[in-house]
């Protein structure tokens, strides 16, 4: 099966809601970052140590969530096409909070900034966290540009979810170093 059509060869692409926009459009930047985050999570999953095998299904679930996030971002506020997309809910953010608390319970207290790195899976988790923060900033920009509060609401759940997801990825990075016996490197001023 061919996966190319050439319809975007002149720099435009179609949103899920039908609009044709330049590929440099802020909305494309936003879901492009989410796409990148999903790819980094794939690398993270591939690097998981056996000591953290139970994290694998969680990563798969996050990747599925991000497909929904991307579809939502690819759809303009107010479009009838939104009815075709399943949005995440506060329960998904709450599940992330529970996962953060569970991982954090095993970790030593954090007393200073840490340098990203350690086990390869932890390094990927840090990379995912930073891409997640970039995606979050893009969504903040979209919400800000939306102007009308009712249109800003379109992004409300995304901002909560991405904020919580980056927190989860930070704690996950520490957890992966912890279970593999690699101490976090503290920032020395």
């Amino acid at each position: 099966m061919k996966i190319y059509t050439g319809g975007g060869d002149q720099g435009r692409t179609s949103l899920f809601s039908g609009e044709r926009v330049f590929k440099a459009h802020a909305r494309i930047d936003a879901y492009g970052d989410v796409d990148e985050l999903n790819s980094v999570l794939g690398a993270l999953a591939a690097a998981l140590p056996v000591q953290a095998a139970e994290i694998g299904p969680k990563i798969t679930g996050l990747q599925a969530d991000l497909m929904k996030v991307g579809a939502w971002l690819a759809t303009s506020p107010g479009s009838p096409a939104l009815a075709e997309i399943e949005a995440l809910t506060t329960a998904d953010a709450a599940a992330l909070e529970a996962a953060i608390d569970q991982l954090d319970a095993d970790l030593p207290p954090l007393r200073s900034f840490i340098l990203p790195g350690g086990h390869p899976a932890a390094a990927w988790a840090h990379m995912a966290r930073t891409v997640c923060r970039r995606a979050e900033r893009r969504v903040v920009g979209l919400a800000d540009a939306a102007g009308d509060p009712s249109r800003q609401d379109h992004y409300a759940w995304l901002l909560v979810y991405l904020n919580r997801l980056s927190d989860y990825l930070f704690v996950l990075a520490r957890y992966l170093n912890h279970v593999t016996g690699i101490p976090d490197r503290m920032w020395q001023k």
Binding site: Y4, G8, T13, F16, V34, D35, A64, A71, E84, I85
Partner: peptide, 11 residues
């Protein structure tokens, strides 16, 4: 689709 980010399947 070649967007790299297709909507989640509804099937």
């Amino acid at each position: 689709m070649n967007s790299g980010l297709a909507p989640p399947t509804n099937g």
